[in-house]
Computed example of a mutant assay.
Amino acid sequence: MTEPLRLSKRMSELGLCSRREADEWIARGWVRVDGKVVSELGTKILPTQKITIERQAAAEQSKRVTILINKPVGYVSGQAEDGYKPAVALVKPEARWKEDKTPTQFHPTQLRSLVPAGRLDIDSVGLLVLTQDGRIAKQLIGEDTSIEKEYLVRVQYTKPGRLPDADLQRLNHGLTLDGRKLLPAKVSWQNDDQLRFILREGKKRQIRRMCDIVGLKVLGLKRVRIGRVKLGDLPAGQWRYLREDESF
């Protein structure tokens, strides 16, 4: 026998929407199971049952925006904290990149439920994704995400000489943080003082902590790519919409 599970969880697993969106749609009567409307939150179903969503849900979802920001130093990714501004404060018409060719018009309602899909700490810069679309948030920060994030990291070796090759290998494969082995990474020298990191996970201050273990001090950290989406020429402090032909 297959165990029944919450309808909202199953909808999220199928990539239809986030759990929060699922609950919203269920409450509005926009979800059918085997052809019948289900409007009670917490309803459980079998994985074999067929879920369909009403056109209103699809139409509302298509209006949800995803915004790419080149975050400067001094902004936090999420909620405002300790007097620092959140990155969403940069999303205003005058800061929109003039090269943004998407036809989407800016409207203040786009700031509602606009959440960071992955974080950049206050001292780091580069590509930050803010989205209203639960599917994209799940894709980028869900437990089973395998989407690569690429960073350029300026470093200084705190010991005599140069970083040994064995320690570079440890950065690629063989470090443990918080008692858990890290997933393999791709770490290589770009020039004398800059490393390229490609990760498939995002623990808090992960790159800085990885560097610290092997005696490297991070002087600057910039995220330049998430999956297939690149930062490109987007200027610092400016933003653009994710294009329809782009996907992570």
Rank of each mutant, 00 (worst) to 15 (best):
G220E: 14
Q139P: 03
A117E: 00
R55C: 03
G227L: 02
G174T: 04
R154G: 08
K36P: 03
K50L: 11
Y157E: 05
K181L: 12
G83E: 05
Q238W: 02
L14G: 07
L163G: 07
I67H: 10
V229L: 13
R223P: 04
T66R: 08
H107S: 14
L177C: 03
E99I: 01
C17P: 11
D233T: 08
L5D: 12
D133G: 04
G118D: 02
L140Y: 04
I198L: 03
K186G: 09
E54C: 02
V214M: 08
S12C: 13
S188C: 02
K71G: 05
W189Y: 06
G35A: 06
P164C: 07
L168Y: 01
E244Y: 11
Q110M: 15
L168S: 03
Q169G: 12
R209C: 03
S62V: 00
G174W: 04
L163N: 06
V155H: 07
L175W: 03
R135T: 05
K230R: 12
G161D: 11
E143M: 05
D34H: 04
R180Q: 15
I69E: 08
R170K: 15
E40F: 09
G220Y: 11
W239C: 01
L183Q: 13
E60W: 08
K71R: 05
L90F: 00
I136E: 05
L114R: 09
E246S: 11
T176A: 12
L111R: 06
E24I: 01
L41Q: 15
V229P: 07
T43C: 10
V155I: 13
P93E: 14
A22Q: 09
L182G: 00
E143K: 04
L16Q: 02
D167A: 13
I45N: 03
I26P: 08
T176L: 10
E54G: 07
L216W: 01
K85M: 10
C211W: 03
G179F: 06
Y75P: 10
V88H: 00
I51C: 06
D121G: 02
S18G: 11
S12A: 15
Q56H: 09
E148Y: 05
L175G: 03
D100H: 13
G35S: 02
K50N: 12
